[in-house]
Design a protein around this nucleic acid. Structure first.
Lengths: 119, 119
DNA sequence: CTGTATCCATGGAGATACTG
DNA sequence: CAGTATCTCCATGGATACAG
């Protein structure tokens, strides 16, 4: 899903409907196939790289690393490296990231109600 | 953003974390660059094709039609055609679609809080 | 006014091999 | 263990022309 920039709205919208900026901003942060699930998984407790990879069966290393980096760059997760051998890296939610959890919980609730099966 | 199917999770997840299905289901319904904004716009009142197109300045006709068809197929919006000349078509939320509004409102709230500007 | 049909560009995501 | 570096593929979305 491509990102939305502020040129993508007409003048009336820019003047009267600043809500749209908010929606687009949040959507941009969550663009990417796995980000909702990563954040949802981290809401319980910090998790290591491989734990996330195991949960998201089928994600490639390249994709996972990229999504984690984007989440980190957007200030939604923390990345903590423990200088051990073998290396250990734990990801956790930032306070900003925690504030997305209610949204994800609502999506879960909606999906439980309507989504008997995935297609 | 590509859709997620149920094969995309490992066995432990399938057994213990059915929440993931719900999140993925909802995410799939909302995959697409403009769907959040279309639903948000319809929450106020039904709107015509060209009203939506005007709001989403920059969307092509092909893309808009496709997204509207998908929303309709997923049961989130109604499409009502008035047999007039020139033709008039109004789109409105279904009850299922209305239940996504709280999610979009939360996204708007989050974006207002953190998204001073779009990039 | 509300679309349909066609083609094309883009970027997200997966596969694979390699590394500190 | 936790990545990085390439390469490829394909779905999404945009542009354009045309139509009922």
């Amino acid at each position: 899903m491509s990102r939305i920039n502020k040129d993508g709205f007409n003048e009336e919208c820019k003047k009267d409907h600043r809500e749209i900026y908010g929606i687009a901003y949040t959507q941009n942060l969550l663009s990417g196939r796995w980000k909702y699930l990563i954040l949802w998984f981290l809401k319980f407790k910090p998790h290591r790289y491989n734990e996330i990879k195991t949960l998201l069966w089928g994600i490639s290393q390249g994709s996972l690393t990229k999504q984690l980096r984007e989440l980190e760059a957007d200030g939604l997760i923390n990345r903590k490296v423990y200088p051990e051998v073998p290396p250990r890296v734990e990801y956790s939610l930032t306070s900003k990231g925690e504030q997305l959890i209610p949204i994800i919980d609502l999506m879960e609730e909606f999906g439980k109600k309507f989504g008997d099966k995935l297609d």
